[in-house]
């Protein structure tokens, strides 16, 4: 770990000013940032501790909820309103990491979780995300956990989290406090970026930005599912995950909100798939069609080719379960 100035932010404005400085990074739970700093994948020159900012608590917000950026993953998943009205979110959070990590990891920090790409983590390997312009060793290497959708020639990394996948299905919004004191609302679906030519940027945050919270829309009801496929029964990143919020009315899919983890540089959301399903009676043929549409641009990198059939099968499982079907 490189030496850094440890600074504590005492207010939002204060935090913004400290974070505008080149090389400054905010730290909340630290479970991902310190992991990367020990390896010197992350080398902030100043670490701004935002833990004492008043960003805790889950409060009513219109018909929905406002989750403070510093609410721990554990507290969020344990909140009766989240568990009762947004079970897909509770389930997704509980699918990720461990109780120990979730006790520290925060809502804002978890959105900023970086990829688990092996090559990103290994300083001896080239990585455009870590060091722009050096190349992507994952392409042509071992890429079992890598992207099949939305990847670029510069980067095939995936966003590894679970929480944001559920937030994407719920169409939640990220509340951001800018360095100039401005507040902006960014849909979770637009918060993370595709890698393109600038894979070093995971999301749309600008220097000095502080995530202050996440806003959930009104409880969507319906059947809410989060399904995660992984190599171990617990404590493993998703090979593929699916978050689903499905309404069935009189035998017809009235609405289907779907998001996918493990497939791309961001939680994957494809409105075409939702549009296809809506207004249709559930059937295996329909689900196959939905999977085909979802994956029509999917491309394997070798070791992750299996994710294409795995996604197809997992989506089918989720849609069947959500619509009362069985195997």
């Amino acid at each position: 770990m490189k030496p850094f100035d440890y600074q504590r932010a005492h207010g939002l404005g204060d935090a913004g000013q400290l974070l505008v400085a080149e090389g400054a990074k905010p730290i909340a739970g630290g479970t991902n940032l310190l992991d990367l700093m020990k390896l010197e994948v992350e080398t902030p020159t100043a670490l701004v501790d935002v833990n004492r900012l008043p960003l805790g608590g889950i409060t009513p917000h219109g018909e929905g909820l406002h989750i403070g950026a510093l609410v721990s993953n554990s507290a969020c998943a344990a909140d009766p309103r989240i568990r009762g009205q947004y079970p897909v979110l509770a389930r997704a959070i509980l699918a990720g990491a461990t109780f120990q990590l979730r006790n520290k990891a925060t809502t804002g920090g978890n959105l900023c979780q970086r990829t688990r790409c092996y090559y990103f983590y290994d300083l001896s390997q080239s990585c455009n995300k870590r060091e722009p312009g050096t190349g992507c060793a994952a392409i042509g290497g071992f890429n079992r956990i890598h992207a099949i959708l939305g990847a670029s020639d510069a980067c095939i990394a995936t966003y590894p989290g679970d929480m944001a996948v559920a937030l994407s299905a719920l169409d939640a919004t990220v509340e951001i406090h800018g360095a100039k004191g401005d507040k902006r609302m960014v849909p979770v679906r637009d918060f993370h970026r595709l890698p393109g030519d600038t894979p070093e940027r995971d999301n749309v945050l600008e220097p000095g930005d502080v995530i202050t919270g996440v806003v959930l829309p009104a409880p969507p009801g319906g059947t809410q599912l989060y399904r995660k496929v992984r190599d171990r029964a617990s404590y493993a990143f998703a090979l593929v995950s699916v978050a689903a919020v499905v309404h069935l009315e009189e035998g017809v899919i009235a609405s289907a909100r779907l998001a996918f983890g493990g497939l791309a540089h961001k939680p994957w959301h494809d409105p075409r798939v939702e549009a296809l399903l809506e207004g249709q009676a559930p059937s295996d043929a329909l689900f196959d069609e939905a999977a085909a549409l979802l994956l029509d641009t999917a491309r394997g990198q070798g070791s992750n080719d299996f994710k294409i059939p795995l996604t197809r099968r997992t989506l089918k499982a989720v849609l069947r379960e959500a619509t009362g079907g069985t195997l």
């Binding site: 630290g30 670490l47 501790d49 554990s74 120990q100 006790n103 520290k104």
Partner: peptide, 19 residues
């Protein structure tokens, strides 16, 4: 490295003492 921080379990390796 699990310890109890204010009663909750955490990985003590992934947090800084100064915090």
């Amino acid at each position: 490295c699990t310890v109890l921080l204010n009663g909750q379990r955490i990985n003590s390796c992934l947090t800084l003492a100064v915090m």
